[in-house]
Nucleic acid binder design. Structure first.
Ligand code: NAD
Ligand code: NAD
Lengths: 235, 235
DNA sequence: TTCCGCTTGTTCACGTGCTCACAAGCACGG
DNA sequence: CCGTGCTTGTGAGCACGTGAACAAGCGGAA
């Protein structure tokens, strides 16, 4: 604990809540950079990202003291530091499992490559789908997943299969060496502790919305987490 | 405050964190009902939903005392109470704005209707898209939004337009009377306090995954919120 | 050089959410 | 009718996240 007097700041533990806000800050910085601003204050960054200034400053302080008192943060430098912290200095290759409705849309989406997450492979179990080409990528059979992961240097897996197949697909991904999974199937997946799992569940989001809407119609109370603060336009 | 001695339990305030878990519990109950179980213990429900039993019990206690000590919760009855609380006793009609890649996939997806959120209308700004039919629904022009909302009794809006148009589309939705919005565009929206706003941002999810993956490769620490507890299969 | 205004970084107090632990209470068997 | 076993419902302590407030510190003006 008391090794060296002042040197405990290396590799700070960043709170989970903060981590989930970093990408938003980064996007806001990109916007500020686009406007040609050399520096940005926590106040302005708060406006752009939809949080409050105190939270912004506290979050940024976990990355280090990259601001200048009386001036603000150097946009470009902060962008760099944040990208580094988020691991965005390299591309992360993504495989999408399940090339149906949703898988198609994701494969065609250009926004991933732009942000450093190129879709490098597609896999499916349906022989009719395997072999077809989407956005320049030929769909491979899911049995080939280990080979695909090795060949394409895949590190992130996206599950866009029906819920019934999701756990099996996740297991296969993990067997193939993937340690980060994003799941779109509406089901609970079980993964070992060394695997990161995040989920996107649209039905859940809609149900949360309906809860608050019903409450609002019943008595008086809104708010459904998320942003909504600030004023004017947001970005 | 002290109006009647024991009657403060009416219309309990349910914590936000609990609300976001209710849809998961509901889905787990559906599964249990499918297996023909008449009752379910908090322990089992915890397994199915990926949380721990204490949290399950506390969450359910906000809805009321619907369990039976020594036995568990009546699956059907709890399902009913939870649906009622979430406002799922009626259908909520949804409009999707922006019928591109993603909008198409969402419009074709059957899972929404199944869960009580039928897609009742589609709107877009592109004259080439307006008039086309998807999944039995003719795409209308976004200028007609107020009429569409009235005609189709829309209460939830989904934004699947490019980020640059998202704020304007949100404003139009709100003008048209919509009070619940789900945003897929990677941008911060500003809405009045009486409007619920939730967002789904895939790039953010991927960046969070890359943060933890990079950390894991650097020193030793995993975990990216979400589920991952329990053992065996999860659903 | 010195002073002043501005913004950061941090501290502190508070609220929310989570986990543990256990008494209360129900069903069932004897 | 009563005891036993099991599961709920909840109270207390703790961890985490949030927001306000302010001293520290930098840049620019005079
Ligand atoms: N389409 C949407 O807009 C949408 C919205 C929300 C959630 N989802 C969820 O996303 C998932 C996919 O939805 P969809 O509409 O694309 O479904 P889909 O049926 O159109 O596509 C599923 C694809 O997965 C493939 N597949 C099935 N089993 C597989 C396996 N074991 N390994 C690999 N591939 C397999 C199928 O061949 C098919 O191509 C579902 O879980 C759905 O609930 C979809
Ligand atoms: N496609 C994906 O898989 C995916 C994934 C993550 C996020 N997103 C986000 O979802 C949004 C849509 O993505 P996409 O790939 O479907 O884009 P897209 O360009 O294919 O479709 C956008 C649609 O919105 C319409 N539109 C544009 N301005 C409009 C306006 N003012 N009012 C109504 N409609 C308007 C366009 O005509 C087009 O049909 C984007 O913000 C994107 O970043 C998409």
């Amino acid at each position: 604990m008391a090794d060296s007097p002042k040197r405990q700041a290396r590799r700070r533990k960043i709170p989970e809540a903060t981590v989930s806000r970093l990408p938003i800050y980064l996007r806001s910085l990109l916007e500020a950079a686009g406007d040609g601003l050399p520096t940005i204050s926590s106040e302005r960054l708060a406006e752009l990202s939809g949080f409050n200034a105190a939270k912004v400053r506290k979050d940024l302080s976990y990355l280090g003291s990259y601001g200048t008192r009386g001036v603000g943060y150097d946009v470009e430098y902060l962008q760099f530091q944040m990208s580094r912290e988020l691991g965005l200095t390299k591309d992360w290759h993504v495989v999408i499992a399940g090339v149906g409705n949703l898988g198609h849309a994701l494969a065609n989406y250009g926004g991933f490559s732009e942000r450093g997450f190129p879709v490098a492979a597609l896999v499916d179990a349906d022989p009719e789908v395997v072999g077809t080409e989407i956005n320049g990528i030929v769909v491979r059979h899911i049995d080939e997943l280990p080979a695909v992961v090795a060949e394409e240097d895949i590190s992130i897996g996206i599950i866009a299969t029906p819920a019934s197949a999701a756990q099996e697909v996740a297991d296969r991904m993990i067997d193939a060496g993937i340690r980060s999974i994003l799941n779109f199937a509406p089901t609970i997946l079980t993964v070992p502790p060394d695997v990161s799992l995040r989920k996107v569940d649209l039905a859940v989001e809609l149900q949360i919305l309906s809860f608050y809407q019903q409450r609002r119609s019943g008595d008086g109370d809104g708010s459904a987490s998320s942003e909504s603060a600030g004023s004017g336009r947001g970005g």
